[in-house]
Design a binder for these strands. Structure first.
Length: 264
DNA sequence: ATGGCTGGTAGAACCAGA
C-alpha cells in the first residue's frame, strides 16, 4: 500500500484567535495533516467542531489553559496517540500518533528558554537544555520510522538567523543550545528536511518578531521550526516549503507554517 | 537600541513569547 501525505507544522500562537487564518490556510494549502503548536487552549476549549467541518475529523489534542498546547488535526486516521512530558512539569508540549503506513508523527513545542542564556540566572534556560537532553534519551532508543516536527526554538546554522554574530549571545542561537540540538540530531541520525530541501548557506527563516515595524523589510528572522526525518524516510519526501507569505496575512502568527509532502 | 508587538486572563504597576 502506497500512501501520499501532505503534512504541515505551524506555531499558531492561539488557535482560537486565528480560526479565520486557519480556514484560509486549509483552503489554500490543503494539508492532510496539520500539526499546531501554542494552541493556547484547554482540550475542552479547542475548536474541534471547526476542524471536523473542514474534514479534519481525526484529532489528537494535548492542550492546556493559557500557554503552550499542541494538536494534530488529520484527514487520515491517527492511531497509538501518546504524549511525553519531557520537562516533568505537566506543560503540554508534545503529542504523537501513528500515520497510515505505520510511520510515527511526533509534534513538539520545545521550551523557548527565557531571556538570559545562563541556567544559573534563568531557570527556564536550564529547563530548555534539560528538555533537549530528555528528548535525546528518548530519541536514541527509537526504532520506528518517525517524523519529528514542530517549534524547536533553536536556529542551528549561521544562515538560520538574520545575524549570526549578534545572535550568538541571544537565546535560540547560543553555542550551548546549538550543541544540545546537534546531540539530539545525532542520537537518531535525524535528517533536517529544511536543509535538504534548501541547502545552506541559503537564508531560511520561519519566525519574525511582532515588534519590527515592517517584518519583511527588516527581515530579522530565525529558523525555529523544523521537520526532521528518520534516516530511512529521507527518500520519502517530495517537496518542502516555508510558507513565508502566510506571515504577511492579516493578524498573523509570528511563525510561518512549514509544509512537506511524502510518499511511502 | 533589552524597546518595539500580541494573546490570554484578569480586570495589571500582569505574564509569556524568543
Amino acid at each position: 500500500m502506497s500512501v501520499t501525505l501532505r503534512i504541515a507544522s505551524w506555531n499558531i500562537n492561539s488557535v482560537r484567535a486565528r480560526l479565520d487564518l486557519v480556514a484560509r490556510f486549509l483552503k489554500e494549502y490543503a494539508p492532510d495533516v496539520l500539526c499546531l503548536q501554542e494552541i493556547k487552549a484547554a482540550n475542552g476549549d479547542f475548536p474541534a467542531a471547526f476542524f471536523a467541518e473542514h474534514g479534519y475529523t481525526h484529532m489528537q489534542l494535548r492542550g492546556q489553559r493559557m500557554h503552550h498546547g499542541v494538536a494534530i488535526l488529520s484527514r487520515v486516521e491517527l492511531t497509538e496517540a501518546d504524549s511525553h512530558d519531557w520537562q516533568g512539569n505537566d506543560e503540554a508540549r508534545h503529542v504523537g500518533a501513528t500515520l497510515p503506513g505505520g510511520i510515527r508523527l511526533e509534534n513538539v513545542y520545545i521550551p523557548a528558554g527565557g531571556d538570559i542564556p545562563d541556567a544559573r540566572l534563568n531557570p527556564k534556560f536550564g529547563q530548555k537544555l534539560d528538555y533537549y537532553d530528555r528528548m535525546t534519551r528518548w530519541s536514541e532508543k527509537l526504532r520506528r520510522p518517525t517524523i519529528l516536527l514542530g517549534d524547536f526554538n533553536i536556529a542551528p546554522l549561521p544562515c538560520d538567523v538574520w545575524n549570526h554574530k549578534h545572535m550568538l549571545k541571544v537565546v535560540s542561537h547560543t553555542p550551548v543550545e546549538v550543541e544540545k540540538m546537534e546531540q539530539l540530531r545525532q542520537s537518531h541520525g535525524w535528517v533536517d528536511l529544511g536543509r535538504v530541501a534548501i541547502p545552506a548557506p541559503e537564508r531560511q527563516f520561519t519566525w519574525w518578531s511582532y515588534r519590527a515595524k515592517d517584518w519583511r523589510e527588516s527581515d530579522r528572522g530565525l529558523r525555529l521550526d523544523h521537520i526532521w526525518l528518520s534516516p530511512e524516510l529521507a527518500e520519502t519526501h517530495i517537496d518542502y516549503q516555508v510558507l513565508e507569505n502566510v506571515r504577511g496575512w492579516d493578524k498573523p502568527s509570528d511563525h510561518a507554517p512549514i509544509i512537506a509532502s511524502f510518499s511511502w
